[in-house]
């Protein structure tokens, strides 16, 4: 019974149709497919492909740009570091110079002051000597007059 139905089905298919029934469906399907290719090309592949390409170009450009800026920033940082070091060294040099100068000035002042003090002492000494001399001289003169007075007194008393 089953075999019979299957046979019937095959016979039926044999009249018209069947699995391998090739007819005008084939060329029409090909044309339809080509139209689909064209439509999808306009609607899908071109616009989205353009977006993809644009995006990858944009990313590539941005990345290159960022890389460039990064290297620039690194250079700048290095330069700043160098400048800072230079400035620090200069500052140290200036400080050292100023200290040396100050020391020199102090030493000079000290020497000057000592010299002045010496000078003053010498002057004072000279003054003292001079005054002593003067006093001695005046005293010597007075010795004469005093001795004469003493003599007079003594002689006067005696006479």
């Amino acid at each position: 019974m089953m075999h019979w139905t299957i046979l019937l089905a095959v016979e039926e298919a044999g009249e018209k149709g069947g699995l391998f029934d090739i007819d005008a469906t084939m060329p029409l399907m090909a044309i339809q497919f080509l139209i689909l290719v064209v439509l999808l090309n306009v609607l899908f592949y071109k616009p989205l492909g353009k977006v993809l390409d644009d995006r990858s170009a944009y990313i590539r450009n941005n990345q290159a740009d960022a890389q460039e800026r990064l290297s620039k920033a690194e250079n700048l940082a290095k330069q700043y570091e160098q400048d800072l070091n230079n400035t620090r060294r200069q500052a140290q040099a200036v400080i050292a110079e100023a200290e040396a100068e100050a020391q020199k000035i102090a030493a000079a002042k000290l020497a000057e002051a000592q010299q002045e003090a010496q000078l003053q002492r010498e002057q004072t000494q000279q003054e003292l000597d001079r005054q002593k001399q003067e006093a001695m001289q005046s005293l010597e003169q007075q010795v004469d007059s005093l001795s004469r007075q003493i003599l007079d007194k003594l002689l006067g008393v005696a006479s």
């Binding site: 029934d21 090739i22 007819d23 469906t25 399907m29 090909a30 497919f33």
Partner: peptide, 15 residues
């Protein structure tokens, strides 16, 4: 499925 028909697949293959 259209692809279960031999016409469709032959069309695609010939293209």
């Amino acid at each position: 499925a259209p692809t279960s028909d031999i016409n469709t697949t032959i069309a695609l293959a010939l293209l």
